[in-house]
Amino acid sequence: MTGRAERIGLLALPGLSFLAVIYALPLFMLLLKSVQIDGQFSFAEYVAFFSDSYNLSVLWRTLRVALLTTGLALIIAYPTAIIMARAKGFWLSVFLVAMVLPMSVGVVVKAFAWTILFRTRGVLNDTLMSLGITDAPIRMLFTETALIIGAANVFLPFMVLPIYAVLRQMDSRLPEAAASLGATPVFRFMNVTFPLSLPGVVAGCAFTFSLAISMYVIPSLIVGERQQTLSMLTARSFLYLRNEALGATISSILLLIAISVVLTSSWAANRLGARQ
């Protein structure tokens, strides 16, 4: 068996070597740049990064935006996933298409759509003013709120689909058994449906958080240069400041965060999986 499994493993070789050359090697060279000053091994770039209060505020904003985006996406995605898991035939197709199709529209297009909605004389402000809710336009574009709403929208499918997949597989008899044992709908959700959906929630949050922490186009278009995120800072370092060491350092920090998210979530998913 082991021999056979090992030989099947050989099938991954082309993919792995492709990744090694195209992805891992340049990444390694990039990481190397962050710990090398004039050919000497040094953490000076990291020390410099973390002693600059502006960098820290960008780091904090990036984390905050990613967390809030993940949270908002989860709140919107969970009910959607429940409805999709119960949908059949035509309506299920409608939901799946509605989830997948927007992914084929570029992020740029979607972010621009949000600017149309959010700008000073945009759809939202015009509506609010014509309804008499506000007299003057509210500043929405270039705010963190707009960024979080826009990002949650773009990343929604990555939250909905894993949760949907888990809920869909759940035995529909389980909530029924719970009901027959006297559990109210709320008790049923809290003690059966939600705990059983946790692996999907963990996966969805890991996807969304990883995407949100490294997003570049959406913040560039919705909030612009004034409120930097780590990705924007990285791009600036490479493209404008021509400071490769700084860019490499920020990239490494981003990568570290992403790796810890992936490891934590896979650990959590394993634990939850083992419980079942």
Binding site: D171, E176, S180, L181, P185, V192, P195, L196
Partner: peptide, 20 residues
Amino acid sequence: APAHKRNISVVFQSYALFPH
């Protein structure tokens, strides 16, 4: 009356035990 207010227990074919 909804199922949870009837106090009627059901044993399902698949038993429907809570896996978690």
